[in-house]
Every structure is written in structure tokens, then in C-alpha cells.
């Protein structure tokens, strides 16, 4: 959830990035959407945005980035263009009394890019927590860019998903071959159920003669089972994988902090 102060900060920063003609369009449409009587126009304006606002990628100053990362942890990990900002301003313009019904209905007809922005924007809503079922549903997508919008550089999942949905997100990241280190606050999401499912997954993959992502051990370390220890001792590893396996099998390895795993994720 973002506080009203944070929403205002975000809105002001976003508005400063448009040219006058674009800003006119944005201001007039957000005004219409903010009126509960006419808020149903949200769908149309959200879709028409590319006709009136360019898709230029925004460059942020270091100051701006600092503010934005406070409001939205992970903000700098993904690109934002003017259309994204416009669409998020439209989401923020909806009154919280109607935003859930309007946004959820719009998800049902949203095209690929629209879904991406919707999922990226939810965290900024005052009542973000009310959208956790929607995000849990989003994890079921097979569109990689939509999945990434939820998983990558987006603080929503760790903050609002229950363990079951969160665990599915992590499991599916491996199935879809997505990186783990870009998931916000990943280490806070470690739990024994997840570690067990992942260890079963490692066994299944190894039995089939296939590899696993090295990042998987980040979520397993601390919960490593004896059967896995046994399997590990029977296998030989090379390169980075060997380094990681050696490290996690040592007792109380002090080096296993988030910087370590970030390096592993980026190298893999």
C-alpha cells in the first residue's frame, strides 16, 4: 500500500515527465475517471493511451530514483515508459470505493501490455491488499512478460500474497526459467514448505538427467534435507554450481547474504 503522501509524490514525479500536450490529455482523463459517476470510462482511456502518449522510456534523476525506490521497492529494476505512467495515473485516479470492481473487470479483457502495467501498478493503490487474489491469479499466466510484471522488481508479491500463492510464484519462476534475484525481498519469503517442494523438484529433475537453476539453493539453504545431502554427495558439480553447492553444504556459512545471491543470479 502506498500512503496518500507517497501517491502524491509519485503522481507529481510522473506528471513532470509528459510534454504539455500529453499532460493535457492525462489530466483531463484522470479527472473524468476520478469522478465515480464517470469512472467506467477507465477501460477506454486505459486502452487508448498509446494513441495520445508516446512510449518513450523515462530517464530518472538519481534524486527521483531514490524517492521512487522508497515508495516502490524495486522500482529501478524495470523500465517505465510514458504510457505506463499514464495508465498508473488512471488507476490511481479511481476512487478506492470503485477501483476493485473496475480494475478486476478490466483484467478480464486486458491485452498483453495492459496486463503488464496493471500488475505493476497495483502496489501503488491505497487498497493494494484487496488485489491479492488477482495477483495470485496472475501467477497462473503463461505469458512471460505478464509473469515478470508480477515477479520482477515488484514489491506486491512479498508484501501481500499468502504463503501458498507466494510459494507458487517461486516454484513457477523455476518452471518458467525466470531469474530469482529480481524478485523483491526474496529472502523474507523463505519457508520450509517452499524449501521442501523445491527439493522434491531438484530430485525430480536430477532423476530425469536434467539441471536446476543455481538460484534454487537460495530458497533451500537452512532447510537442506538428509536425502538431498546424500544425493549431493553422490554427484559431481562444476564451476559456479560447485561453488554454490560447496558453500551451502558448509555449516553456518557467513557469506550467504543477499549480495552473494545477487551475484550468483546475475552470473548464471
Amino acid at each position: 500500500m502506498s500512503s496518500l503522501k507517497e501517491q502524491t509524490q509519485f503522481t507529481n514525479l510522473a506528471k513532470s515527465k509528459f510534454n504539455p500536450k500529453e499532460l493535457d490529455w492525462v489530466l483531463s482523463k484522470t479527472a473524468i475517471v476520478s469522478n465515480v459517476e464517470t469512472s467506467k470510462k477507465f477501460n477506454m482511456f486505459f486502452s487508448l493511451t498509446p494513441r495520445f502518449v508516446s512510449n518513450e522510456i523515462i530517464t530518472w534523476s538519481p534524486e527521483e530514483i531514490k524517492t521512487l525506490k522508497n515508495i516502490y521497492p524495486g522500482f529501478s529494476l524495470t523500465q517505465w515508459n510514458k504510457q505506463d505512467l499514464t495508465r498508473i495515473l488512471l488507476m490511481l485516479a479511481l476512487a478506492p470505493s470503485v477501483n476493485k470492481s473496475i480494475i478486476e473487470a478490466f483484467f478480464e479483457i486486458a491485452e498483453m501490455k495492459e496486463q503488464v502495467v496493471l500488475y505493476k501498478g497495483l502496489y501503488l493503490l491505497e487498497n493494494a491488499s484487496e488485489f491479492s487474489n488477482q495477483v495470485a491469479e496472475g501467477i497462473r499466466t503463461n505469458m512471460v512478460n505478464v509473469f515478470d510484471a508480477i515477479a520482477s522488481g515488484n514489491p506486491f508479491a512479498q508484501k501481500y500474497l499468502d504463503d501458498e500463492a507466494w510459494n507458487q510464484l517461486i516454484l513457477k519462476s523455476f518452471f518458467m526459467d525466470r531469474p530469482l534475484y529480481t524478485i523483491q525481498n526474496i529472502d523474507q519469503g523463505k519457508n520450509e514448505d517452499l524449501a521442501n517442494m523445491l527439493q522434491d523438484y531438484v530430485k525430480e529433475r536430477w532423476a530425469a538427467g536434467r539441471q536446476v537453476s543455481i538460484e534454487i539453493w537460495r530458497m533451500i539453504v537452512g532447510y537442506l534435507r538428509d536425502d538431498l545431502k546424500q544425493l549431493i554427495s553422490e554427484r559431481s558439480f562444476e564451476g559456479l554450481e560447485k561453488e554454490v553447492i560447496d558453500t551451502i553444504t558448509q555449516q553456518n556459512s557467513p557469506s550467504l547474504n543477499s549480495e552473494y545471491w545477487e551475484r550468483i543470479g546475475k552470473t548464471e
Binding site: E108, I109, A110, E111, M112, Q115, N142, M143, V144, N145
Partner: peptide, 13 residues
């Protein structure tokens, strides 16, 4: 509705 959204969603992907 689902057909149209498939045309702009899954099939596009």
C-alpha cells in the same frame, strides 16, 4: 469476450 481477449492476449504472445 474471451475470444477477443485471446486475440489481443495469448495469441499475441
Amino acid at each position: 469476450k474471451d475470444y477477443f481477449s485471446m486475440l489481443v492476449g495469448w495469441e499475441r504472445f
